[in-house]
């Protein structure tokens, strides 16, 4: 039975490996090569320039501006998204009223809530961007958010939203939170469901309220999942391309207030044809992403609790 084994292994692996090698691995390697050239896209015109592109990047105010916005999002979006996700998941799974014979219960209709909350996760980011572009319509009478605020007497909160320099980035961050909370509700719900009920029962018998149950039991037991979720959400916050491209005023505006690294890269490459320089931005993005992931894993590490 062994004789056909290697032929079978090669036969099954060859095509997947070939496709993966050509379209993923080779571009990955080439990205580093291109980043050290002044390539403008024409065949045979790339000149080796060493680390010049990275030096240029280091001096570029535009790039630091874009990077700063990504870092703001990195600080804000995962924190809010995961906090809301944990809160809702706790409400759905443990926060229900106490019934006979059952110590910990979810609220009624938790399946329905999960269905709705998760919805933005399955629709395209372009659709989400168009929806929120309309919600943020700056017109005080015609804008969805503005007219709603006006209708409930909160006129003073009406704003130009995406047109307001100090607000635009936070408006886009809010959409990211909106779109991803449901994912974490479902993720944390699954993790909470695997926590044995008797732990909750014991806590309850000892007189722990919901507040204590959450911070002393649920959160420590879910820490691993929270940590992974943090890395996932951070990587999403380092992107933000589609939302900025479709929603923001003049792509990255007003006045550069919503510019982000991927948008810089895209415009540098496919509008200005400075492919070498753009590839250097890509490498810089890889470094930022990796640094973030490693730091999170390092600083968030705690002793793992087996249950």
């Amino acid at each position: 039975m062994q004789h056909g084994k290697y032929r079978f292994i090669v036969g099954f692996l060859a095509l997947p490996l070939l496709i993966y090698g050509v379209f993923v691995i080779s571009p990955f390697v080439q990205a580093f090569q291109i980043s050290m050239t002044d390539w403008s896209g024409l065949v045979g015109t790339a000149e080796f320039v060493g680390l010049d592109n990275f030096g240029k990047l280091w001096e570029s105010d535009d790039f630091w501006n874009a990077l700063r916005h990504n870092v703001y999002m990195l600080a804000f979006v995962p924190l809010v998204t995961l906090a809301l996700g944990l809160f809702f998941a706790f409400m759905l799974n443990v926060g229900g009223r106490r019934r006979k014979n059952e110590v910990v219960t979810g609220v009624a209709g938790s399946k329905f809530y999960k269905f709705v909350f998760f919805f933005p996760q399955v629709i395209s980011i372009t659709i989400i961007a168009v929806i929120w572009f309309n919600i943020y319509n700056p017109d005080p009478d015609d804008g969805m958010l503005n007219s709603l605020l006006g209708a409930v007497g909160l006129d003073f909160l009406q704003n130009a939203w995406l047109g307001e320099k100090s607000l635009a980035l936070w408006c886009i961050s809010a959409v990211m939170v909106w779109g991803h909370v449901g994912f974490y509700v479902v993720l944390f719900s699954a993790a909470m469901a695997s926590v044995p009920r008797d732990i909750y029962e014991a806590a309850l018998l000892d007189g722990a309220g919901r507040f204590h149950t959450f911070f002393r039991i649920t959160l420590p037991l879910l820490w691993d999942t929270v940590q992974t979720g943090w890395v996932y959400m951070g990587i999403i916050a380092l992107d933000a391309f589609a939302l900025v491209q479709i929603m923001s005023v003049n792509m990255g505006g007003p006045d550069g207030a919503t510019d982000v690294m991927p948008l810089r890269l895209y415009l540098t490459a496919f509008r200005d044809s400075q492919f070498g320089y753009a590839a250097a931005m890509g490498v810089a993005m890889l470094i930022v992403t990796m640094t973030f992931a490693v730091l999170t894993m390092r600083f968030a590490r705690r002793e793992r609790i087996e249950y």
Binding site: V24, S26, P27, F28, Q30, A31, I34, I235, L238, D239, F241, M261, P262, L265, Y266, A269, F275, A278, A279, G282, V283, M285, L286, T289, M290, A293
Partner: peptide
């Protein structure tokens, strides 16, 4: 773990 943005140019 590869950021797709880094790969799109090559």
């Amino acid at each position: 773990s590869f950021p797709v943005f880094m790969l799109v140019i090559p």
